[in-house]
Design a protein around this nucleic acid. Structure first.
Lengths: 235, 235
DNA sequence: CGCGCCCTTGAGAGTAGTCAAGCTTTGTGG
DNA sequence: CCACAAAGCTTGACTACTCTCAAGGGCGCG
């Protein structure tokens, strides 16, 4: 077993899907896994593609986005190290409902639908983990629906930034830096607004020193102020 | 076994969650089930309640709605005969994320979280069915996010009505009647708009003869016209 | 008959989208 | 290393969709 295998093996155990699995079971999981290294800005799958696989990210950042027949686009989710993606299509209609594209260099691992079904069959725990994961996603999605339906753009952006910071933020001397590259357009597509509105809202925040964009990375310097907006809808 | 038991037993087999289960397995399922009859406008559970159960509706209609801390409300989903509800909370945080209220007289059946886990453990098929069900819901939710983010109210209402008609519509001489009582406010809360906007949009459609409201039941007389609006965003 | 619930309609205001132009940063090739 | 192109961002002017506030009508029920 090479050094790479060892380290990947350890990483598999840290995926939520394989939480609390025995070493023997993990061996089986690893035997069926397909690892892949990807460069920046690579499509992993496209909306509508068949032959779906269950994916997990070992390292890097991936953007999941969905477009309607009219071309309008929303970002469904950002994926970071340790998270699963492409899971919605599994065991339902067998087509990816969204696109996945790498934002950085990535290492991903994936299993075919049939192999995953077999693993679940032999290790009941995996099925339960899977249920927990998509249950949480469903809650997230429903909260997002409520936000979109009831809150205004400024507040949605504040919420989105806080959520991203909480989930994938690194604390440093300036504040909390969100680890993946975010263009204004991405922020807009997360919040269901336009590039223009996003820009109009973020610029004053930058001017006020509440956040900084550098090299497409966002740092929240004053999360407290942004929290204010998220809560009250005003400064 | 009484006549009621027999008929309920048959009904259990028709629930998607217990699809393709052996008669023996269904017996186990039934043994752990708790049946309940409910009158109109009854709360089944409240947002935030603990000790969650897995629910399924044998007969009737239920509205699932969620409110934010500011009181704003959205309808998450309408449940009709044969569907599950209250599923999101299972195996995640153990609190209902929404309210459930009956819109008609109802018969529901439910299982405790522990009992369902045990059933899944013994009958792997149930877990797979469960995954399929919430996978589909997740897709629905994501599509809804996209609609809210990219489409205007009129189009969202058209889509919502068509979806409801497709899922719970009965064809008759006038058109397709949606089987549960829908107030204007409900339609608004489904589409993330206000009672006023919903009314302003629906009234012209009624005037044009595309739909009729009678006794809080909606009938789509001209689904083709509504389809037009859903597709093109114009008449 | 009066009250409550639901729906409709009008007027006005404001949020956010569209269109358009110019600026900054990044990347690439000479 | 510079020049130029491409991509991303900001900003202004304008428009319009949708919300808010307000008033009134219809219907059923006690």
């Amino acid at each position: 077993m090479s050094i790479v295998d060892v380290s990947l093996g350890r990483n598999l155990a840290s995926l939520e899907l394989f939480d609390a699995l025995s070493p023997a079971a993990l061996d089986e999981v690893r035997a069926l896994a397909r690892f892949k290294h990807l460069t920046r800005n690579t499509r992993i799958f496209n909306q509508g593609d068949g032959s779906v696989r269950a994916h997990a990210l070992i390292e890097g950042c991936v953007r999941i986005s969905q477009s309607g027949s009219d071309g309008a686009q929303v970002v469904v989710r950002f994926i970071t190290r340790g998270e699963m993606f492409g899971t919605v299509a599994l065991f339902t209609d067998g087509r990816y409902p969204a696109d996945a594209e790498t934002l950085t260099e990535c290492t991903e691992v994936s299993w075919s639908e049939a192999d995953l079904a077999q693993l679940m069959d032999r290790h009941h725990r995996i099925a339960l983990n899977f249920i927990r994961i998509i249950g949480k996603r469903l809650q997230d999605a429903q909260n997002r629906v409520r936000e979109l339906a009831t809150q205004r753009v400024e507040r949605r952006i504040a919420h989105a930034l806080l959520r991203l910071a909480r989930r994938s933020g690194h604390r440093n001397s300036e504040g909390i830096t969100i680890e993946f590259p975010l263009r204004r357009k991405d922020i807009a597509d997360i919040c269901g607004t336009t590039l223009h509105s996003a820009s109009r809202i973020l610029t004053p925040w930058e001017k006020a020193g509440w956040l900084v964009t550098r090299d497409q990375r966002l740092t929240l310097c004053r999360p407290d102020e942004i929290e204010q907006i998220a809560e009250n809808g005003e400064t």
